[in-house]
């Protein structure tokens, strides 16, 4: 069970949260002109790194706010939490790009 630091309520047990998968997936605009392949990529194609993964989570049983979280998929260590709309902190952004 992870201990997740909600940026609003503080550290809470994983059971209070829901995971929304990969973060920073923006919905395409002008979807009418999008090819089927590009639309499918938005819907289904996600990273599956062994290493740092940027995810979005919601504090379902608490403040009901969504936020972003950087987590190592190997150690489950949570490296950063940051608010929706913010870019990942520089430290984890570098690690995420490396993706070993």
């Amino acid at each position: 069970m992870l201990l997740i630091p909600c940026p609003f309520c503080g550290p809470r047990d994983e059971s209070e949260f829901g995971c929304g998968g990969e973060a920073h997936i923006a919905r395409p605009t002008d979807t009418d002109r999008l090819s089927d392949a590009d639309w499918a990529a938005y819907l289904f194609m996600r990273k599956n790194p062994k290493g740092v993964h940027l995810e979005r989570w919601v504090h379902r049983l608490g403040c009901r706010r969504w936020f972003n979280l950087a987590r190592s998929t190997v150690s489950h260590e949570i490296l950063a939490v940051y608010k929706m709309g913010d870019p990942p902190p520089a430290s984890v952004a570098g690690q995420e790009a490396r993706r070993t």
């Binding site: 929304g20 923006a26 919905r27 979005r56 919601v58 009901r64 706010r65 969504w66 929706m84």
Partner: peptide, 8 residues
């Protein structure tokens, strides 16, 4: 709806 409002 909350997810769309808060994230998008």
């Amino acid at each position: 709806m909350e997810e769309w409002l808060q994230c998008e």
